[in-house]
Design a protein around this nucleic acid. Structure first.
Lengths: 241, 241
DNA sequence: TCTTTATTGTCTCAATTTATTACAATAATA
DNA sequence: TATTATTGTAATAAATTGAGACAATAAAGA
């Protein structure tokens, strides 16, 4: 690979030593998946992340990054932990990434520093997105949460904690709303819950519980051409009541 | 007040733009309280906080700060949110604090920058602590959570979120263990729960629930000289089973 | 010594919630 | 029209929680 000279992220624009990582969850109708990117010619897998500009809010920086990668605005986003151990600093890996991309070492100095990273998870509607790699990476793909490639630094720990937080928030934050299309069947909603909790749920109890919450609107039936009773479609009630 | 020349925190030792704030909870037997410090001659109240050294883990930096302020080691500590809005940057307030302490403006340059702050809450045994003010502050005192003085910047928001997180974690994290002395009565345990939840609980049902959890050891009775049946003392089971 | 009083430790029964099972109502297919 | 695989709902059992009753004290006072 020939060395390319690229315009580098400038230390003047960004807060030094501060980064963010995002665990972007999607649901393909069966499995819970997350977006993982692979850096050029290094075989290094990582969570999508980025840096925060000196003149923007932390949250806005993360939203900007998500918009660039997914094309989506108004993504459901939640901060869950900040990782600040010295051990997460891995000079070698970052150097390889910069080298493989043709950056001069001295250019990338600040990128080789220690970083504290604020981790977020995002929930998106799987079908809405055609993820785009960024300048430093040559691919970004969906991976089932239980079949991840080996991730660099502490990114696997970050995913684990994101999953745990998602589990804890499942009840109170109406997670399903953000992982499903506007209309969905009760079965699909149940599958989202099962994927997040990592356990099978009883169909009848799940249905009763969801209906009792009074958060769903029932719509027309969905005819899939199957030789059995057609399920209703539901949507989450808009809370403009 | 005469200007004093002090040795200032040096930018060379600390990660720039990064701070932490701690909401330190204590329980005096009746109310839930937190430690608030007041800066010299400014009337500014704030949460205890500090900065992270370039060669220490984020968590260790926070523990170091807690040790300096409370004299305690092995404090129960939990990170709950990172605050990174531009609006929390308040050049004026920091300038007043530095001025009142006799620092030259140029010395304090990096302290006047924008800061991202990682917030933690700590739980300590109220009686164990005689809090010490730091170099910049002339007092540090316990305040009931519902009678706080006006706090600088977004510190009130930080307290609110700490309380909310504490409430959410009450069931799963055995919060009581860290706010009470080794041995305590069922009534005291209930008061901790009530203070955190902000509501009264039924004595009999609370007792039944706690005993059913099988996390308490029952010890001798506590005779307080009151004209009624003496309560048992309890402690949390050590999980060295 | 015998009441009285304020709590504490348990129990009981009602109300509510959750688990489990049963079964009727389909939507194609044969 | 019978068959089959689901889906929607109801019925019943089991478990949990709410509310109240009551006996067991520990000291004070008569």
């Amino acid at each position: 690979m020939t060395k390319k000279k690229r315009k580098l992220l400038s230390i003047d624009d960004y807060i030094p030593h501060l980064a963010y990582d995002t665990v972007i969850f999607g649901f393909n109708g069966e499995h819970l998946k997350i977006l993982i990117l692979e850096y050029y010619a290094t075989g290094l897998f990582a969570l999508p992340g980025g840096f925060v500009k000196r003149d923007e809010n932390l949250d806005d920086g993360v939203k900007r990054g998500l918009r660039e990668r997914t094309g989506l605005d108004n993504i459901y986003l939640e901060q869950f932990h900040t990782f600040g151990d010295l051990s997460r600093h891995n000079h070698g890996a970052m150097q390889r990434i910069l080298d493989a991309n043709g950056y001069e070492s001295e250019d990338g100095n600040w990128l080789l520093d220690r970083f504290i990273s604020v981790a977020y998870y995002a929930l998106i509607n799987y079908k809405d997105v055609d993820p785009k790699p960024d300048d430093l990476s040559d691919s970004i793909n969906w991976y089932p949460v239980d079949e991840l490639p080996p991730l660099m630094m502490d990114h696997h720990k970050i995913v684990t904690m994101a999953l745990q937080t998602l589990k804890n928030n499942l009840e109170k934050k109406l997670v399903g709303m953000n992982l499903l299309p506007n209309k969905f069947t009760m079965k699909e909603l149940q599958q989202v819950y099962e994927a997040i909790l990592g356990e099978k749920l009883r169909r009848t109890n799940f249905q009763r519980k969801m209906l009792a919450l009074d958060i769903l609107d029932r719509h027309e039936k969905l005819f899939l051409g199957q030789a059995n009773r057609a399920p209703y479609l539901y949507s989450f009630k808009s809370n403009k009541s």
